[in-house]
Amino acid sequence: MDIDTGRIADFARRIRKDIVEMVYLAKDGHPGPALSITDIVATLYDSVLRIDPGNPRWDGRDRLILSKGHSCTAVYSALARKGYFSPSILPELRALGSILQGHPVMDKTPGIDMTSGSLGNGLSIGVGMALASAYTKKGFDVFVITGDGELQEGIVWEGALSAAKYRLGRLIVFVDRNGWQSGSTCDEVGGRCPILPRFEAFGWHCQEIDGHDIRAIASAVEAARKETGRPSAIIADTVKGKGVPFMENDNSWHKRVPTKEQYEEAMSVLSERAT
């Protein structure tokens, strides 16, 4: 895949600034888990997804389900910056009457393909969309971004079995393996169980990548798209809070609002350095 990594890195930095600013202005939201998926989101919206921001309901578009819906600030920013709606709306996150709900809602926000936020459900819904892609012969791909903590939800594995059974090559699932969930580390909360062997056991094509390496993300999608006879899991190692040093791997930023000083420090760091 021919990609412009510099442009995508700039896009990712723009998204990270939006995430911090949205949470700061809304005085609410989840910065840490949004920052961990930012490079995946930036790469998908810049170079991977076949979409038309001028026609958000185009029936042949690739679909993206943000199963970890609490990370929606990353996707809201990407959609605004791609032209689905004005970036001036971003500060209205979680406000009364806003199109930017606390978790994604498909009919309120242009570009959101599926309502999400109740964890664990995105993969199964993606199975339905991939079945629709095949049945309607529209040939679109279905991307799901799931957290690692939410893999504790049983429905994930109900869907994983169906996806393999129906050989859904158009279903590509990113697992944002940042190692944390609301309460603590995933290992501590839910128990240790390696992710890749689980998906492999279900018959999936599996890859492990650095979830902050733009070229690796694009290459993994390219490989996944070549797997036409089985679904793909791309297990992306990420850092919760990535890009804002004082948030990185500090789980208090799962859901937390920066102070004015922290906000200014974050914006300053994000303005300086490429991520």
Binding site: D59, M114, G128, A132
Partner: peptide, 10 residues
């Protein structure tokens, strides 16, 4: 959930 995904695609 599969039904929801199918319905979301028309």
């Amino acid at each position: 959930a599969i039904a929801a995904g199918l319905a979301a695609c028309g």
